[in-house]
């Protein structure tokens, strides 16, 4: 799926950077950065309601191409500056995390295969 298509499906607003030409292959929706870090995927878009600088640092580690902030949240200038330093493209959508993910998924953007061997989908007991 192209970034342009993502922008359209999410009634999005581009906050920073230029839409990447390369196809987006996978997506992750979460407010927990440690969950995002556990299942890295190729050419990923991250959808999140978390608007702090750690989102950008996490994205740097995972080579995330595009970040979408949900529920109309616009991050502060400090967070956008962190994204700019790392050449990460940022958009915002009025939809909730649930609905934004649903729109992309039902239009053919898969969750993607984790580059980590077969761990996603296992049961995890909380302590």
């Amino acid at each position: 799926m192209t970034a342009q298509r993502i922008l359209e499906l999410l009634d999005g607003r581009l906050l920073l950077g230029e839409l990447p030409e390369e196809e987006i292959h996978s997506a992750c929706g979460s407010d927990m950065m440690s969950d995002v870090l556990a299942f890295p995927k190729e050419r990923m878009v991250l959808l999140t309601g978390l608007t702090n600088a750690h989102v950008m640092r996490t994205c740097e580690m995972l080579d995330v191409l595009l970040v979408v902030f949900v529920r109309g949240k616009i991050p502060g200038p400090d967070v956008l500056a962190e994204a700019e330093k790392r050449d990460i493209v940022v958009m915002a959508t009025p939809y909730t995390l649930y609905e934004a993910c649903g729109r992309l998924y039902s239009n053919g953007l898969p969750s993607g295969v984790s580059t980590q061997e077969g761990r996603c989908g296992e049961w995890v007991q909380s302590h």
Binding site: D31, V55, T58
Partner: peptide, 10 residues
């Protein structure tokens, strides 16, 4: 802040 899922060490 988006951390504390208990995922780091594993």
């Amino acid at each position: 802040m988006g951390f504390g899922a208990g995922m780091g060490l594993p």
